[in-house]
């Protein structure tokens, strides 16, 4: 899809009004699939109504960090509190039910079941709850109503709710995930590389949705390797390098160049 105007990455947003702490992580350690410790003792917190951006060159432990926070990967050490509850090492379902939304890095691998219709992908992690699942039975009318509403609300371009999601464009596939994740009552949104590989229209749309979530009092943890994206959206920025957070700064008081140096391994005190 071509856009006939200047790309605006500068997102319009008001000053954040952060509320209570919603996510707290202490000394978190995670290993990757090969058994190497790629997250090596991380501490941070996210408050309601703010966007914490995690900046860093890809492969510095961001993937494993997000997988551990969402319950997809086990933790080796450390603690995690979500919404006031100790959720260390819990599986995805209780974490999701407590109010965490997750826009995964690899949308085709984790976020979608490609041969499934759009409607089924829109209830992928709520299928068992009323009104979609009642006494173990799927409720087609409720699933249909939900799909039509979300397709409308989030402007998903699809010929029908029953087209396999793999037939949709990348931007529309991501919108299916965004629609599903943002439409259920959530307290925290974890978005990992939410706009990678998308067209400009979709990027703008997703950026607006993320800021709208913040303004509604939802905490956002944004992980991105795109400096512009981090700078444009975040209220605070944590820089991740080799499995650790080297510094956390106020987004308004930092320059692109400084961030770039820290991401490349320069020490903040120097």
């Amino acid at each position: 899809m071509m856009v006939g105007r200047e790309v605006i990455l500068k997102v319009e947003k008001n000053i954040a009004k952060p509320g209570d702490e919603i996510l707290r992580v202490e000394n978190l350690k995670v290993r990757d699939t090969r058994g190497l410790e790629t997250v090596r003792g991380i501490n941070f917190h996210v408050r309601a109504g703010e966007i914490l951006g995690i900046a860093g060159v890809q492969g510095n432990g961001q993937t494993e960090l997000v997988e551990a926070l969402t319950g997809l990967r086990s933790m080796v050490g450390g603690k995690m509190w979500f919404s006031g509850k100790d959720m260390t090492g819990r599986p995805p379902r209780p974490i999701t039910e407590t109010g965490m939304a997750h826009i995964p890095e690899d949308r085709q691998r984790h976020g979608l079941v490609l041969p499934y219709p759009v409607a089924d992908n829109m209830i992928l992690n709520t299928y068992y709850k009323r009104p979609y699942g009642v006494w173990g039975w799927m409720m087609p009318e409720a699933i249909d109503r939900n799909a039509r509403k979300l397709i409308d609300d989030f402007d998903v371009r699809t010929p029908s709710p029953y087209v396999p999601v793999k037939k949709l464009s990348g931007g529309n596939q991501q919108k299916v995930i965004v629609a599903r994740e943002l439409s259920r009552g959530i307290k925290l949104l974890i978005a990992n590389q939410p706009t990678r590989g998308l067209d400009v229209g979709s990027i703008e749309y997703i950026h607006k949705e993320i800021v709208a979530m913040r303004d509604r009092g939802i905490g956002v943890l944004l992980v991105s390797a795109e400096l512009d994206e981090i700078m444009a959206l975040s209220d605070r920025i944590a820089v991740m390098y080799r499995g650790q957070i080297v510094t956390t700064v106020d987004a308004a008081k930092v320059t692109r160049e400084q961030l770039g140096l820290w991401m490349a391994g320069a020490h903040p005190e120097e």
């Binding site: 997809l72 995805p92 999701t96 995964p104 691998r109 984790h110 490609l114 041969p115 992928l124 992690n125």
Partner: peptide, 15 residues
């Protein structure tokens, strides 16, 4: 879901 995409199944909270 497990048959089509076990990773997505895990994401969806399925055991």
């Amino acid at each position: 879901t497990v048959g089509s995409n076990p990773d997505a199944a895990k994401y969806a909270g399925i055991n």
